[in-house]
Amino acid sequence: MALSAGTRSNGGSANVAQRLQKELMDIMTHPTPGISAFPVDENMTSWAATIDGPADTPYAGLTFKLSMEFATTYPYTAPTVLFKTPIYHPNVDFSGRICLDILKEKWAATMSVSSVLLSLQSLLGEPNNSSPLNGQAAELWDKDMVEYKRLVIARHKNPEELET
């Protein structure tokens, strides 16, 4: 029993690695400006990603780092995605956790790393204020964009600052 279970999970992670390698190739052959992602090490199941804040949003000109963890059941379950760069956003809490439907109940096996990152990028410009993790941000988004922007800048850190 133990043996066969082990085999299955090995097979599973091999499939995950294969799938992820393919996604990586897709990203590399069709790079999307403002988005990049790369595995952290050889085993492919944890990635680091970078997205640029979209122009015409309070996040323009800022760069955000994220981490993505893929379970052995990927792509049937969504990856775990966290903002590593502190961000002031209605749908992101202070530890970087994200509230986004496609990362939860609306995940589908047809989605991919790049589609997740694209969704997150657009989330920056179009927060879902109906179910905020950060109530203040949701409120300010509607009421006081100047203050909102100030808080975004204040909270943001450059990648270099993060690493130290």
């Binding site: 990049s36 992602a37 790369f38 595995p39 952290v40 680091a48 970078t50 780092k65």
Partner: peptide, 25 residues
């Protein structure tokens, strides 16, 4: 570039090694 963006600075050796692992085909 993706590697360097997401993993920070790396030595050539390491880049070559990661390429061998990561590049499909």
């Amino acid at each position: 570039t993706s590697m360097l963006t997401n993993q920070g600075n790396l030595p050539v050796q390491r880049i070559a090694m990661m390429m061998k692992i990561m590049v499909a085909g």
